[in-house]
Amino acid sequence: MDRKIRVLVAKPGLDGHDRGAKFIARALRNAGMEVIYTGIRQSPESIVETAIQEDVDVIGLSLLSGAHNILFPKVVTLLKEKNAGDIIVMGGGVIPVEDISYLKEKGIQAVFTPGTKIGEIVDFINEKVEKRNK
């Protein structure tokens, strides 16, 4: 049995800043994960559909435009509607500290802001995925 961790890196909304998303995608690949990147301007609906078809363990949402409070929770809600609430959702980007607790309340399991070490994100994923697949 050789189960690889699969991650969807997605950019919801209209924000075109993809430097962070692409960096994360590459860094997670180098940490041994299989990474799918959606490209920019994805609706929450298509992100969820993609995550399901690709059977990912984790969705990483990246957004710098400030629309996170609306778009991140929407992804979580849609996952639950599609019976895929077990997929781990994490987020990153320009996100004020005071929004983080709100996002966590809404089911985003971690929020990584600029300056986070990639190792921290890798550890988070490994730990969460292990728990999930138990």
């Binding site: 690889k4 995608a25 590459r26 997670l28 690949r29 180098n30 940490a31 041994g32 994960m33 299989e34 990474v35 799918i36 990147y37 959606t38 490209g39 993609t50 690709e54």
Partner: peptide, 10 residues
Amino acid sequence: TGGALLGDRI
């Protein structure tokens, strides 16, 4: 690393 960037889907 055994990892992969799966880019066709985009």
